[in-house]
Simulated assay, not measured.
Amino acid sequence: MAIEDAAVPDAGGAWTKAQPWITTAGRVGLAGVLGYAGWAKVTEPPALQKLAVSSYQILPDSLVAPVGFGLPILELVLAVLLLLGFGTRFTGAFSGLLMIIFIGGIISVWSRGLSIDCGCFGSGGAVEQGQTRYLQEILRDTGFLALAAWITAFPRSKLALDRLLGLYKD
């Protein structure tokens, strides 16, 4: 049984009416964040894309360039899919997984005492000691993770290709 089919208290149909609009707002919000992040990175020179990834000191050198180039494209694709409401549950889940990876990366550099700009919205690289905002970045991405979890759990939404294709019935 899917989560949206579970027994949810519904006083006069309020849940039935509100849930698709809440998910629609979540889709648009998360799409905006991913689209902005992807666009900020994809418009940077490849050297800066690689610097942002290599600053985390997690990946082998052979993966830095592909991740630096591919991550912004992935973010843009997820943004478009969320905005269109296509494959909503899958796209929400994949976006959530991406947020978990981002949170893990930030926790990793914080725990190792590295001082970097996360590069979440472009730029990235080393920064002066004390200029990091790791806790704020983790909390921000946790909020985006919660949004992705909502979209995954309740994918039925308005203005979505999923609905036009009959994947979710009203």
Rank of each mutant, 00 (worst) to 15 (best):
100 I>D: 08
133 R>D: 11
34 L>M: 12
101 I>Y: 09
65 A>S: 15
77 V>S: 09
35 G>T: 01
119 G>K: 06
82 L>Y: 06
30 L>Q: 08
90 F>D: 01
107 I>A: 15
74 L>Q: 05
25 A>Q: 04
21 W>E: 05
60 P>K: 10
65 A>Y: 11
142 T>C: 09
117 D>F: 02
48 L>N: 05
61 D>Q: 13
47 A>D: 08
123 S>L: 11
82 L>N: 09
19 Q>M: 15
22 I>W: 07
155 P>S: 05
9 P>D: 10
159 L>G: 01
10 D>C: 08
137 E>K: 09
22 I>F: 14
104 G>T: 06
11 A>F: 14
122 G>M: 08
157 S>I: 02
167 L>A: 11
85 G>K: 03
169 K>L: 13
37 A>Q: 14
38 G>C: 09
134 Y>M: 05
41 K>T: 02
95 S>K: 07
129 Q>M: 13
159 L>P: 01
42 V>Q: 07
114 L>N: 08
116 I>R: 07
109 V>E: 06
31 A>T: 03
163 R>P: 01
5 D>C: 02
78 L>C: 05
137 E>R: 09
19 Q>W: 03
102 F>H: 07
125 G>Q: 07
88 T>G: 08
148 A>T: 01
152 T>R: 02
75 E>A: 11
92 G>N: 04
150 W>S: 04
58 I>D: 05
134 Y>H: 13
65 A>N: 12
158 K>Y: 08
81 L>K: 04
92 G>K: 01
33 V>P: 02
27 R>W: 00
12 G>T: 07
131 Q>I: 00
94 F>S: 12
72 P>G: 00
137 E>A: 15
67 V>F: 13
46 P>R: 09
37 A>K: 01
154 F>A: 03
145 L>Y: 12
96 G>F: 03
23 T>S: 15
100 I>K: 01
158 K>N: 11
7 A>C: 02
137 E>T: 13
57 Q>K: 15
153 A>W: 04
92 G>I: 09
72 P>L: 04
154 F>S: 03
152 T>V: 02
36 Y>C: 07
142 T>V: 07
147 L>A: 15
38 G>A: 10
136 Q>E: 15
20 P>F: 09
85 G>R: 05
84 L>H: 00
111 S>C: 01
48 L>S: 06
9 P>T: 12
154 F>P: 04
51 L>T: 15
17 K>Q: 12
52 A>W: 02
96 G>Y: 01
13 G>E: 01
160 A>H: 06
95 S>I: 05
161 L>N: 08
19 Q>E: 13
142 T>S: 15
28 V>D: 00
69 F>S: 12
140 R>L: 13
118 C>T: 15
60 P>D: 10
6 A>R: 11
109 V>Y: 05
122 G>A: 05
10 D>H: 07
117 D>M: 09
34 L>E: 05
